[in-house]
Write a protein that binds this DNA or RNA. Sequence first.
RNA 1: GUGGAUAUGGCCUAGUUGGUUAAGGCGCCAGAUUGUGGCUCUGGAGAUCAUGGGUUCGAAUCCCAUUAUCCACC
Length: 371
Amino acid sequence: MAIEFRVLKESTDCSARIGELKTPHGVIETPVFMPVGTKATVKTMTPEEVRDLGAQIILSNTYHLYLRPGHKLIEEAGGLHKFMNWHKPILTDSGGFQVFSLSDLRKITEDGVEFRSHIDGSTHFLSPEKSIEIQNSLGADIIMCFDECVPYPAEYEYVKKSMERTTRWAKRCKDYHQNWDRQALFGIIQGGMYKDLREKSVKDILDIGFPGYAIGGLSVGEPIDIMCDMLDFTAPMLPKDKPRYLMGVGSPDYLFEAVIRGIDMADCVLPTRIARNGTVMTSQGKLTIRNAKYKNDFSSLDPECDCYTCTNYTRAYIRHLFNVNEILGARLATIHNLYFLIKLMENIREAIKEDRLMEYREEFYKKYGYI
RNA sequence: GUGGAUAUGGCCUAGUUGGUUAAGGCGCCAGAUUGUGGCUCUGGAGAUCAUGGGUUCGAAUCCCAUUAUCCACC
């Protein structure tokens, strides 16, 4: 088996746990936040910089790499790790999300999805088998089943049919996957915001059996209370000795609430995307660096942060970079935001260790301005 | 000095057979962003239409004068 997961400690007052996830490219301490590097790069960062920020694993994407530069080319390069010079663990998403979110013209059948490239309009076909074949070529430590992520809100009947098809596709993914010793294939729970469908999905995906389980179809625009409610219901049904991955979550509050409910892994484009658009997360809350009030502010982005950006640059300078559209602005903000979330997860792990996660959350929320 | 052209928010422009709250871009101000099509997207403020008269029910638009700028010629 490619991965080995061990729970090291469980919280006494919530479902949070600390764990250790061994992969072919190193050990990951959980709970972990995974930066996203869709097209084989965490935008604006070199892999060395991402590593030095403390990132333990990054995400990349099947759909995008299949279209460009092509999975065969990456295989020829020696796999994704070697191609992009990132030698820590990688997780690739199956491409399911992109097929459903990017493509206008798509046709879903039992066999798979016919879609048109967002780049040149060419027609392609992605199936469970094709997605696994691509992910095998890419060579990530953890790969994902090809699923359908339904939007929110969605009709019960549609979600039900979609969830059942995702389950059948999961079986096909498992049957097709070959190198289990080098790549762990995770199953994905669907079922939208309907508890009975979530329950059925968990049961069927567990029956198929995977070394790890993801909860998909959340953080798709529903209120945070609903996500929490779905997690409260879904997470406890997953086996304790397997990693649990909540897909697409990345704001501090969502991360806290997910970890408290037993989530071990999460990924999100949020920190890197908002960084490029001039928003940074700080211990005192969100800050839009373009705002005029920072024009003469020569303090750092976050007085409590010791990242590269905060130890070397001022708000006034970074604001200037954004106002004149200089690339360095996006880089400095990205460095800070990634460090902020990586540090946050480190603090969360420490808090779990010391059995004070709920207190830490309270303290963080007050300062950040959530409460 | 003579002749001609132009004058619209901070900047660049649209807008004439005269007709309701003068349009757009840039800039400015603010917001959004959650398994990444994103230097993206959404919203907001800001103009007595150079100035003064006149014609008209009604003028950025027509007429006169003034001022400024540009061009050509002496």
